[in-house]
Amino acid sequence: MRTETKLLGGFGVLGAVALGGIIFWPVRTEPAEITLQGDVQRGAYLARVSGCISCHSDFENGGASLSGGKGLSTEFGTFYPPNLTTDATHGIGGWSVEQFAKAVRQGISPEGDPYYPAFSYPFYADMTDQDIADLWVAFQTVPPVNESAPENDVSFPFNQRWGLKLWRAAYLYDPDTESDPTKSDAWNRGKALVNGPAHCAACHTPRNFAGGRILDARFEGNDALPGDSKAPAITPSTLIEGDWTVSNLVYAMQTGITPSGDAFGGSMTEVVQGNTRFMSPDDLEAMATYLLDSSS
């Protein structure tokens, strides 16, 4: 009996130490100084492709650009995309480009707290310093809005941010953006976009109980998206079965029109209207080329 108590107590102490370790476990590293000159046009384009603008703005309800997005209601709670305007108090006006880089590529706030993966930072990890510099100067053109987005409405235990460190250890995957020399330039460009900034898998890959992507089921669709939305499978075989081709996939990403003569509904409408229709025909063709041949 006493041994058991001691043991339990021992585990308790161990647990507390471990927990303390996790809470104070510093995450990731400080990015090196970024001195590159950014290109505003390129940055704005990347902000479109990556969904910064569509997610962090609520145009439908009259919100200003990047002043905070519509709440994302999930099984873990409701997440509100924050204000990313140049306001120093309510936006990111007081940030340095290095802090911005850390937020975007590593998912860590300037205070050192991990962000919830409702923010699709895992897909941005391979952005280059030039990408970051471009994004950064584009963000500098956004007029300040002096109002904060609502606080996330997340209940226990998901409101314990240290828990996200465990999440990161378990489910933070490096994006697969590496080139394959046996494939065409378009395919490789498409791969880097699809698995990187365009973050298709954020919705089109199912997630487990903890919101981690199930990598073995990549692009097999997700029936449980925030807001009761569903994303269909976009594996090459399902796309080919659905009469998708490079040409009509490009067109669908520009217009929302599917090969069957339907128009997308659900969240994909927002993706087309806020992201993909701004993309260059070359980039769209590259993404379509890769998606139709993504398993090889």
Partner: peptide, 22 residues
């Protein structure tokens, strides 16, 4: 001459609208 409705967003249009709403 070119595909797509928003191709001009990359060219002539101002960055304000590129970073803004439509």
């Amino acid at each position: 001459t070119s595909m797509g409705s928003a191709g001009s967003m990359m060219g002539s249009s101002s960055t304000d609208s590129m970073m803004g709403g439509t």
